[in-house]
C-alpha cells in the first residue's frame, strides 16, 4: 500500500533528527495596538469605524450601506431571526458578524465557525461587517495563536480586508470572489 511505501521511503531517506527550535521570541509592539490595527486594515482596503457603544452598531451599518436592504445582522439579532435570509445566502447583501480577536500587525480578524454562523457566510455575502472589541487586539500572529484554540470548532479563519485580486496585470481590484467590502466596527 502506498501509505506504508511512502512512510518507509521517508524513514530510509530522512536525515538524522534535527532538534526543533525553541519557540520564537517575538518582539512586543507596546500597549496601544488600535492605531497599528487600524492602519494595517486600511492598507488592505478595510474601513474601520471606532464606536463607543455597541448600541451604535445597527445605525452605523445602516448609514454605511444605505442602499442595501438584505442585511443579516447576527450581532444585534439572534440567529433564528435571519433564517429566511440564510436560506438564500447568495442574495445577502450585508452580513454583520462578531470577530473574536484582531491582529495589529496585519489587520486580520479571527473567527470560528460559530462566529461565521455558517461557514460560507463571510465569503458569500456581498459586504461584510465585523464587530470587534478593542480589548481583543493582539500585536502579532504569535500572540494570536497563543490565544486562539483552533481545535475547538471545525473551521476558523483570519480575515484581513475585503476579498481582492491582482491577477490582471498586477492592478489591485477589491472584490474578487468574497466580500466586496469590509467594515470593521471597533468597540471601546
Amino acid at each position: 500500500m502506498s501509505r506504508q511505501q511512502i512512510l518507509d521511503a521517508i524513514r530510509k531517506n530522512k536525515p538524522e533528527l534535527v532538534a526543533a527550535p525553541v519557540p520564537f521570541q517575538y518582539l512586543s509592539m507596546g500597549e496601544d495596538l488600535a492605531p497599528a490595527f487600524v492602519a494595517a486594515l486600511e492598507k488592505v482596503g478595510g474601513v474601520v469605524v471606532i464606536l463607543k457603544e455597541r448600541s451604535d452598531i445597527a445605525a452605523t451599518v445602516q448609514e454605511h450601506y444605505q442602499e442595501m436592504t438584505r442585511i443579516a445582522d447576527f450581532v444585534n439579532h439572534p440567529r433564528n431571526s435571519n433564517q429566511a435570509l440564510l436560506h438564500d445566502a447568495a442574495s445577502i447583501e450585508v452580513a454583520v458578524l462578531e470577530g473574536q480577536l484582531g491582529v495589529a500587525e496585519n489587520g486580520a480578524i479571527w473567527m470560528q465557525e460559530s462566529d461565521c454562523i455558517s461557514r460560507a457566510l463571510p465569503f458569500i455575502t456581498q459586504h461584510l461587517v465585523l464587530v470587534l472589541d478593542k480589548k481583543k487586539l493582539v500585536a502579532s500572529m504569535h500572540g494570536a495563536y497563543a490565544q486562539i484554540d483552533t481545535t475547538k470548532e471545525g473551521f476558523g479563519v483570519f480575515i484581513a480586508g475585503p476579498s481582492k485580486t491582482a491577477d490582471i496585470e498586477q492592478s489591485l481590484v477589491i472584490g474578487a470572489h468574497g466580500a466586496k467590502s469590509l467594515l470593521v466596527l471597533l468597540i471601546g
Binding site: A40, K43, V44, V103, E105, N106, G107, A108, E113, R119, F123, M141, T150, T151, E153, G154, F155, G156, V157, F158, I159, A160, G161, P162, S163, K164, G178
Partner: peptide, 13 residues
C-alpha cells in the same frame, strides 16, 4: 502583511 483569508479546516461541516 497576510493574505485576505487564512482558512483553518479541521472537521467537515
Amino acid at each position: 502583511a497576510i493574505t485576505t483569508y487564512s482558512s483553518h479546516f479541521l472537521k467537515p461541516a
